[in-house]
Nucleic acid binder design. Sequence first.
DNA 1: TGTTGATACGAAAACGGTTTCGTAAATAAC
DNA 2: GTTATTTACGAAACCGTTTTCGTATCAACA
Lengths: 333, 333
Amino acid sequence: MSVTIKKIAKDLDLAVSTVSKALRDSHEISAETKARVFEHAAKLDYIPNPYASSLKKGRSGNIAVVLPEVADSFFSAAINGIDSVAHEKGYHTMVYLTHEDIQREQSIVREFRNGRVDGVLMSIVANNAKYEHLRELCASDVPLVFFDRVCEDIPTASVITNDFESGYIAAQHLIEKGCKYIVFLSMPGELAIIKHRQNGYQQALQDHGMEPRIIYCTDREEENIAVIDKLLTGEHKPDGIIGSIEKITIPVYTVCHSRNIPIPSAIKIIAFSHLQIAALLNPPLTTIAQPAFEMGKAAATILFKTLAKKYDLKEEKIVIPSVLMMRASTHTD
Amino acid sequence: MSVTIKKIAKDLDLAVSTVSKALRDSHEISAETKARVFEHAAKLDYIPNPYASSLKKGRSGNIAVVLPEVADSFFSAAINGIDSVAHEKGYHTMVYLTHEDIQREQSIVREFRNGRVDGVLMSIVANNAKYEHLRELCASDVPLVFFDRVCEDIPTASVITNDFESGYIAAQHLIEKGCKYIVFLSMPGELAIIKHRQNGYQQALQDHGMEPRIIYCTDREEENIAVIDKLLTGEHKPDGIIGSIEKITIPVYTVCHSRNIPIPSAIKIIAFSHLQIAALLNPPLTTIAQPAFEMGKAAATILFKTLAKKYDLKEEKIVIPSVLMMRASTHTD
DNA sequence: TGTTGATACGAAAACGGTTTCGTAAATAAC
DNA sequence: GTTATTTACGAAACCGTTTTCGTATCAACA
């Protein structure tokens, strides 16, 4: 069995409480005894049992990160940001994937109320408007911070990017490049970030006297290819496309390549994406790049701030702006 | 405070032990009592405290996944595979990032010996040959399964792909496409998978009477760009390149684009990569695609098999073959 | 000399479950 | 009618820590 405080106490002929205090560097214990304890603990390679102390202290030293998907450059970069601060604080990171499944999200979140994690960082699933599980989580005193995909109905802290403005900028960029008919590839559901991007797009088109058109994609790639193929080969073809999420990029490019639709001459494309490799696509893809790492870092920082003192989460709303990365899919030089 | 077994027992005028057994569906408890307990537990929304039961049972219900990096298509897909089986088994997944830092890996792994996790899935860092921490982990009865980046000095289970053969196939493919001078972009350090890919490459070249050349990259992108730029603009330029890891793709393409070196006519490129988007690069990149999801799934499956019964990890070595995805970076039609 | 006050440590009660063991009552076996 | 066995439950120990409280020792002070 593993070496415990009891073992150390017995070896050194001390009480368990004395050893415990010595290890926590309590002022109650003499320097001499501390030295003996530390030395012997090191010799035996003592590692405290995290469950015993979690049970007693009511803190786990874990945080949860709940995401729809990890195979997405935004989320993986956000994890990096989160982990960078969690590691620094000595916390452990538990990752939960929802795969855009609301039931899975619910069952995951429900379990958090028992103290397995001290706090939760979360990007919610699309495709739903049920927030009872999130409300219950907040009610049970587990601090919750949203990042990117926030739920605006829950009064807690969040870290987002300037989605409305980014949608506006994306549309404006296409308009400046001469597009006359710009389609917005959206996602069904109630996702605030999509709504805001879409609203920004609509506002930009309205400001320029143009008619918006929204097309909804799913998370099944073949369906998206079919929908986009129909769009790009039907009558009244668009000359500009805004992809509201990263995943939509692949089907759009795939269709353009297979149908020999030249980018950017026949159609200009811009996507919300964090992909590094966008610059190497054929042609290089213009993106609205979200500050993924920074957003994860900011969200984690807020969480630890509340964990440290009783800081009020409800006030904090951080907005970190996205950046337009202009490349050849919208631009000829 | 949160609702405990004690509370339920008191409400129902039962002993704590009775409630505990009822909740675990013990045969010692009558159907009637069980029904009462379950009903009341549901009504109070009882969630068991994971630390109390972990402490007593000596199992945490957590597994650790230790990776160099999450912003890599192989590792993110592997996490998906791991999570799919962990979730099915009711386990929780803790993710640890080493960022290729051996000291970080050591401190992470050392902590596992106290029972915070019941088992470890791991891809080791490059750049080192120190395995003492891994040996200690194994010695302390925490089951360890390697995937992809295995440490061959540690006698435990592993899931890998056919690296030697893949290296051979990659080289052979380039030779078949007419390359006369093929460079292998390697990584410094002791990583077995790199060695094997490299050996496969060397064997292929030797079999065709060609002279191998290895160039070592780092994990700093600017350095790699400088090295590759020097290679592709110097005298005695290669007409074929094999990238041993995914990250090397970006600098290679970047240099070719900036120096106007046409792919595949002047140089053919093949990379070990799991990137979906490789098909959309300019030109589409030929890859040796590893079965990332399946490898993660297989590794997790082995781990849970040992967790269930005392199954001997040391025997299991699973090899899941990679697939050559032929695309335009090595191939003109 | 008696009182205070540190100082340094020990005993024991938690934390919230699980598990072993004991036992009363009911039933079965002889 | 006595003994054996099953059924259904309770009491208490235990997992490894933390924390509160008690106390013995010794110096300091009046």
